[in-house]
């Protein structure tokens, strides 16, 4: 597991959130590096299922190109897994004075700004692998479905604190729809 100190950029890897009163800019926070494990496990499961399906098809029908399919899927998955640490490092969020910024993606980059007053609810979800690692996903819901901001891989207590913090912020900046 890569430690925070190994990152080449000066980004705080284990973010802490101040009291709700101080809503000043906190700079970019990365999600926990442990989230790589969650993504890798997911990719590995997908890879095993697909490669296994191709292998079984090869055993049943005996055509050589089933094997090639298995190889292609396996190589693509391995490349994806190799890129996983970089992809996870690209996920970051930033609490500014009046809004939350969220960015992710290396190939397809996306950056979203959500004003605190627009948050309708904050949702915490935890998958099985994430639960073992003590991680949780934080989802922000606004009145627009397209907002689609989910910060994955936050440490559990961090996610709880961030949720309370955001709810408090949203309450003070509540606007209509």
């Amino acid at each position: 597991m890569p430690d925070a100190a190994q990152h080449d950029e000066p980004v705080e890897a284990a973010p802490t959130v101040e009291a709700p009163a101080a809503a000043s800019d906190t700079g970019w926070h990365r999600v926990s590096p442990k989230y790589v494990v969650v993504e890798v496990v997911g990719s590995l499961i997908g890879m095993v299922v697909f490669v296994g399906a191709f292998a079984i098809a090869y055993l049943v029908w005996g055509q050589w190109w089933w094997l090639w399919g298995a190889v292609v899927v396996g190589v693509m998955s391995l490349v994806g897994i190799a890129l996983e640490p970089r992809r996870v490092r690209s996920i970051a969020y930033r609490l500014r004075e009046d809004d939350l910024l969220f960015r992710r993606g290396i190939m397809f980059q996306r950056q979203v700004a959500v004003p605190y007053g627009r948050m309708q609810l904050v949702d915490i979800t935890r998958g099985p692998v994430a639960r073992v690692l003590g991680l949780a996903d934080l989802k922000f819901v606004t009145a627009a479905a397209a907002t689609a901001v989910t910060v994955p891989g936050l440490p559990m207590e961090e996610a709880d604190r961030l949720r309370d913090h955001l709810v408090a912020l949203a309450e003070t900046r509540r606007a209509g729809l």
Binding site: M107, F108, R110, A113, R118, T147, V149, A175
Partner: peptide, 16 residues
Amino acid sequence: LARMQSVAVAAGPIAR
């Protein structure tokens, strides 16, 4: 803008 919910900027590989 008083009723904007959020704003996003995005770029795919070709756009970049």
